[in-house]
């Protein structure tokens, strides 16, 4: 490293001032180039987000009528809405969250409180990480193989369970991380009061980690609300209003997939409306999750 300062003055012993000056200028120049490129990269990244949002508003906002929330999907040219898809998405997301969260929390508790250093613990942690980034279409395939095909065909419950498989590892990760942040003093205090371990976990540690875990659950909800691939082979989609969990069930992402690829203008328009709704919903959940997390961070 040469000892020239950023102003280009000579600071080292016996150096040709001209050479040092040139070197310094070259270093400054490459520094500026890299800085400019980094700013450009960040601008490009932000531009993508802006471009997507602008596209969604531009093409989706115009179709955002009130019938979107009152009418079910209809054949092309009949001015349908998306209420069955919206409600279907809510139901399947609710099932996924309701089934996945408790399992995820228990696994997180196991990893943070019971498994330290054990082989099983490390295996579970690794497997949970694998699940976290497993291609979601394979989870759909799996549920089709074990639930849809052998039993009663496509159903909302199968869709919900496929989503639950995605929820579990997200909740595991945040629960474990949050429990590890709980100060030892808090646990000691609980034990000193004579509380058994499980009570200290449930009443002290989990409660203290509640914000963090809630964040994890919110992020999981945001993730599964936008998932399409695991639903294709499980809940299939439904053109009509249906609340039966044993029947095929509509969902926003699958409806968007069907409608966006169609050549009917009103369907494509509805797909953009659906896309706008789901993106705003998912981004809002993410922002809320971040706000929740902020006091801890």
């Amino acid at each position: 490293m040469s000892a020239t300062t950023s102003e280009g003055e000579m600071a080292g012993p016996k150096r040709d001032p001209q050479v040092a000056d040139m070197l310094s200028r070259r270093r400054q120049r490459s520094n500026w180039i890299v800085k400019a490129l980094c700013i450009l990269a960040t601008t490009i990244g932000l531009a993508f987000l802006a471009l997507i949002l602008v596209t969604l508003f531009w093409l989706g906002f115009g179709g955002l009528q009130w019938t979107v929330f009152t009418e079910a999907t209809k054949p092309p040219g009949s001015h349908g809405g998306l209420i069955n898809a919206i409600v279907g998405s809510l139901i399947q997301t609710a099932i996924g969250t309701a089934v996945g969260t408790p399992i995820g929390i228990m696994v997180g508790v196991y990893l943070a409180e019971y498994s330290l250093g054990t082989r099983l613990g490390n295996a579970v942690r690794f497997v949970s990480d694998v699940l976290l980034s497993a291609p979601s279409i394979l989870i759909g395939l799996f549920i089709y193989q074990v639930l849809v095909n052998p039993f009663d065909g496509f159903s909302g419950i199968a869709g919900g369970l496929a989503l639950a498989v995605i929820v579990i590892p997200i909740v595991v990760r945040t629960t474990e991380d949050m429990l590890r942040l709980i100060p030892v003093a808090l646990r000691e205090a609980a034990v000193a009061l004579g509380a058994p371990k499980w009570k200290s976990i449930v009443l002290v540690c989990l409660r203290a980690a509640l914000d963090g875990i809630a964040t994890g659950v919110l992020l999981a909800v945001a993730r599964i609300a936008g998932e399409t691939a695991p639903l294709l082979f499980t809940s299939l989609g439904n053109l009509n209003w249906s609340l039966s969990l044993a029947q095929p069930m509509s969902s926003l992402p699958v409806t968007i997939y069907q409608y966006a690829g169609s050549a009917f203008e009103d369907w494509v328009q509805l797909a953009w409306v659906g896309a706008l709704l789901i993106t705003l919903g998912v981004l809002a959940l993410n922002i809320v999750a971040r706000v929740l997390l902020r006091p801890r961070a």
Binding site: V87, A94, V99, L243
Partner: peptide, 14 residues
Amino acid sequence: MKTLSLALVAMLAA
């Protein structure tokens, strides 16, 4: 947890 979602569904059904 299933009862929860069922309750939710029942609510929506109504």
